[in-house]
């Protein structure tokens, strides 16, 4: 029985970690080419959750069409935020810290906007899955967790393919070290940046849908970007592989602590781990494993 419980916690931890991974990878992708921590990423998650809710309720469709809408919606939204909020500052060659601050202001704006429009209340998805939980050999596993895990793994595999097997993906990886030279080769760097934001937003869209389904939808849902933030630091800022591994570690750690010690100390432990990494291993898990993910683990 104890073993069963443990196994169940591991599955829950992995599915939580997989959502963190989706968010963290999108976050790390933008960081790797523009070198700033994009806090507006959280608003894309939050708005995608609302979008998925609206779409699935209005058109009475199942999980897959809703997922597709969230992917497209999240991606588009991230591109719009880049064009309106970041591009003007990049064109003026403003310091990176301004991009950071504007991204924070944008996330606050969108959070308050949704509160003003719809109120701070929780919205609940109608069931998009036929069964809510699987009972196997004494385990009770929420199906949404499994769907979350599956969708995240597929999304990450597709991302890997795009980054390593397509020209635009190679250009994204190249742009992480040099935003000027690609232009000389005929590559429109603004397009590369837009594609990067689209991918980042699409991943946020997936996580928004699943977070909305499991935690309900509310204006502060985007606050979960902080977990991804922690994961990217533990992973090594800018390293995608590190971010994924760290996300799963964080998901497991949080689930275990919540289950065996108590939910109140969970945030403290996460932050403590992050600070320990910052102090003793600032290049993160990627540095520990000697991981080269194709993007740099450049120090700031």
């Amino acid at each position: 029985m104890v073993k069963c419980l443990l196994l169940q916690q591991i599955i829950n931890g992995l599915s939580l970690g997989s959502v963190y991974a989706l968010i963290a990878v999108g976050f790390a992708l933008v960081f790797s080419i523009l070198k700033f921590s994009n806090f507006s990423h959280g608003s894309v998650i939050m708005l995608s959750a609302y979008l998925g809710l609206w779409f699935s309720n209005n058109f009475n469709v199942g999980l897959l069409p809703t997922l597709l809408v969230c992917i497209l919606g999240g991606g588009t939204l991230a591109v719009i935020i880049e064009k309106i909020g970041f591009k003007p500052i990049r064109d003026k060659e403003g310091p990176l810290i301004y991009l950071f601050v504007v991204s924070i202001a944008i996330s606050m704006f969108l959070q308050y906007l949704m509160t003003a429009l719809l109120g701070g209340r929780f919205f609940i998805y109608k069931p998009l899955l036929k069964t809510s939980a699987w009972r196997v050999a004494g385990l009770t596993i929420p199906v949404v967790n499994l769907a979350m895990l599956g969708a995240s793994v597929i999304a990450l595999a597709i991302l890997l393919y795009v980054l390593y097997r397509t020209t635009i993906g190679i250009a994204i990886r190249a742009a992480s070290t040099d935003l000027f030279t690609p232009n000389l080769l005929g590559i429109n760097i603004d397009l590369v940046v837009s594609v990067t934001f689209f991918i980042s937003g699409a991943l946020a869209g997936i996580s928004g849908l699943f977070l909305g389904m499991s935690l309900n939808v509310y204006p502060q849902l985007g606050g979960l970007v902080m977990k991804a933030f922690i994961a990217t630091v533990i992973g090594g800022l800018g390293s995608l592989g590190g971010a994924v591994i760290a996300s799963f570690m964080l998901g497991l750690l949080e689930t275990m602590i919540t289950a065996y010690i108590g939910g109140a100390v969970t945030p403290m432990v996460s932050f403590a781990v992050m600070i320990l990494f910052l102090l003793f291993k600032p290049e993160g898990v990627a540095g520990l494993l000697g991981l080269s993910s194709g993007t740099t683990t450049q120090k700031l």
Partner: peptide, 28 residues
């Protein structure tokens, strides 16, 4: 002493961690 050796985003993050820890200690 522990955070000021860090730069930019790292410092911002570490100080955020600090204030979250304070908040959570007060709750705990």
């Amino acid at each position: 002493t522990v955070t000021l050796k860090l730069k930019n985003d790292y410092f911002a993050l570490a100080t955020y961690g600090f204030s979250e820890v304070i908040k959570n200690v007060l709750i705990y």
